[in-house]
Design a binder for these strands. Structure first.
Length: 538
RNA sequence: GGGCCCGUAGCUCAGUCUGGUUAGAGCAUCGGCCUUUUAAGCCGAGAGUCGCGGGUUCAAAUCCCGUCGGGCCCGCCA
């Protein structure tokens, strides 16, 4: 049967394809498959950036599960220039705009460069979300070691073809003297400012000039120089470098945002260069949709950026994998408010995985089981019999570990072998309510008018008796709990209606936490006043 | 100009690639049960022109063509 899960389908495509796309040639068989994921090091890692890595890693796992040798590689694009000063980064760095991030100093002083600083924390976080650990590379190191030299040589030897391919996708042809190699200024060290004036006899002649980014201007120093592309004096341009990376690492597949699907995008220009100039078949693209936050793009200016450490405060990494692995080409919108829904869905899929719940459509069930498997890191997580929303309530009512456990036992959400997992979920839920769901906080109702009308005469009578009994003496939670049943019986009210009256009068809701302990935890004066007020007949 | 995704119950979606029993789930709603697990659990109900129009087929949410609506992206920076 053909694969149902997207990553398995990709694996099939990767291993079964036969021909190059742009030239009429057979693809010689790969002995092992490399999936690449990379990141520019301009700023801090947010969960959107994990998408590429998680999805690439899923494909590696799918390839391995299909019996092939596969590995994940992660490349730091640390030869790229610093383009802007991200939030939280000292402004003094502004003078380094246009300098490769690997040559920009670490403003915090703890690493050898700005790039090193971010790469270090990047790994730490990234590896919490993946099972297959990637081999790591740095473009700075690659150029230094000369790994790209053969490819640069080939590109320059076939310069006319490279230009022809690029021009196919341009309305304005490249200027004469253009080169796919862009030098680092020998004088000031910037990479964005050297403007190539001509490419002659294998050398790039440049002059260092101002370069305007969207918001910043990288100051050029005016230096005029000559760079040798075959020495470590610069880097390839984006359209050529990507192709060279594919050929250098024998990349069989790589993730890319859906903006690259568009014909003529950098992906396809590189793909054609890769095949026609570098004789290497273009990788199978893993185009994916981007994650949206509350239906909007994640961006610093909107202030909705979600960082991994924030995610990990309220949910395990498996849940983010789950979100990303559900579907490849469908926009996923995440919202803190709807986190419980994501948990519910995850729990449902877990139950299907463990055979605790069935799904009519067997194809769908199989898909869900695979999805669950792919969302895991190491040992699959057990299916937890505790809905997140319930965990959120328990988390607010009970502070101590023992109190939480005994509440879970009472409500039937407990299982001794899952104790640690359950407590972890309660802890996640507590953080979630605190930070993202203030409306979920148990809050007492201020105004009683509309609530009074909803109460039946029997319910009022019941509340009156409860008030009388409570006002006689201090009562414990369990005493109250028992008394409610007795009083309800006296006025011939069902237990459900009696409890309903209690919640309506205090919270304004139809339901609430276990009534006895809840009422006992309230301010006694407030409670007595409230009960008297709602039962007053006037 | 071009490309991608989505449109299925009040809401969020699954099912579409690989066509096949009366189209599913969760949540929400409504009803019932519970004298001690009352934001829980159990039982049940209502609720859908599968965006619209054509075509292919014994059979279409599913394939093909067209069309409308919503979202996102590319136009030569990386």
């Amino acid at each position: 049967m053909a694969a149902l899960f997207w990553a398995d389908q990709k694996a099939e495509e990767i291993t079964q394809r036969k021909k190059f796309r742009y030239i009429d040639r057979e693809i010689s068989s790969f002995e092992h498959f490399v999936v690449k994921t990379s990141a520019s090091i301009s700023g801090v890692l947010h969960i959107g950036r994990l998408s590429d890595t998680i999805r690439g890693e899923s494909v590696v796992r799918a390839l391995r599960d299909a019996g092939y040798e596969a590995e994940l590689i992660w490349v730091a694009e640390d030869m790229d220039p610093l383009r802007k000063i991200p939030e939280g980064v000292p402004r003094e760095l502004e003078e380094y705009i246009g300098t490769p991030v690997s040559a920009t100093p670490d403003p915090w002083g703890c690493h050898s460069s700005y790039a090193e600083h971010h790469v270090a924390s990047y790994f730490e976080v990234m590896e919490e979300f993946i099972e297959v650990k990637p081999e790591k590379y740095s473009m700075r190191e690659e150029y230094r070691r000369g790994s790209f030299r053969p490819f640069i040589k080939k590109l320059l030897e076939n310069l006319e073809l490279v230009i022809e391919i690029q021009n196919k996708y341009r309305s304005k042809p490249l200027e004469k003297g253009w080169s796919p190699f862009t030098p680092v200024c020998k004088s000031c060290g910037k990479i964005i400012t050297p403007r190539v004036e001509r490419f002659e006899e294998g050398k790039v002649y440049y002059r260092c000039q101002d370069y305007a980014f969207e918001k910043h201007v990288a100051k050029g120093c005016g230096y005029e120089g000559i760079a040798d592309p075959l020495r470590d004096e610069g880097k390839l341009m984006w359209k050529s470098e990507w192709a060279a990376q594919w050929a250098r690492w024998h990349v069989a597949s790589e993730g890319a945002g859906k903006e690259y699907v568009v014909p003529g995008s950098a992906w396809w220009v590189n793909a054609e260069i890769c095949e026609r100039v570098l004789d290497f078949p273009m990788p199978v693209p893993i185009f994916y949709e981007h994650l949206m936050i509350d239906g909007q793009k994640m961006s610093a200016s909107l202030g909705n950026v979600v960082y991994p450490h924030e995610w990990l405060r309220v949910a395990p990494p498996q849940l983010l994998r789950f979100l990303y692995n559900k579907k490849l080409m469908k926009t996923r919108s995440f919202s803190w408010r709807e986190l419980p829904k994501l948990y519910d869905e995850y729990d449902h899929v877990a139950r299907v995985y463990y055979g605790l719940e069935s799904v009519d459509n067997e194809k769908e069930a199989e898909h869900l089981r695979r999805l669950y498997e792919m969302s895991q890191i190491g040992e699959p997580q057990p299916a937890l019999p505790l809905p997140f929303s319930h965990a959120a309530m328990v988390a607010q009512l009970f502070a101590s570990r023992e109190a939480v456990i005994s509440s879970l036992k009472r409500s039937g959400h407990y299982s001794p072998e899952l104790e640690e997992e359950l407590l972890k979920r309660v802890a996640y839920a507590k953080e979630w309510v605190e930070r993202y769901a203030p409306e979920m906080k148990l809050s007492l109702l201020d105004k009683v008018e509309e609530v009074k009308e909803k109460l039946t005469p029997e319910q009022r009578q019941f509340l009156r008796s409860l008030w009388e009994w409570l006002s006689q003496d201090e009562r414990s939670g369990e005493e109250i709990q028992e008394k409610i049943f007795l009083l309800a019986k006296e006025v011939n009210l069902s237990a459900a209606k009696a409890f309903g009256a209690v919640y309506l009068a205090t919270l304004g809701t139809a339901r609430g936490p276990r009534a006895g302990p809840f009422l006992a935890s309230l301010d006694r004066e407030w409670l007595l006043a409230r009960l008297r007020e709602v039962t007053r007949t006037s």
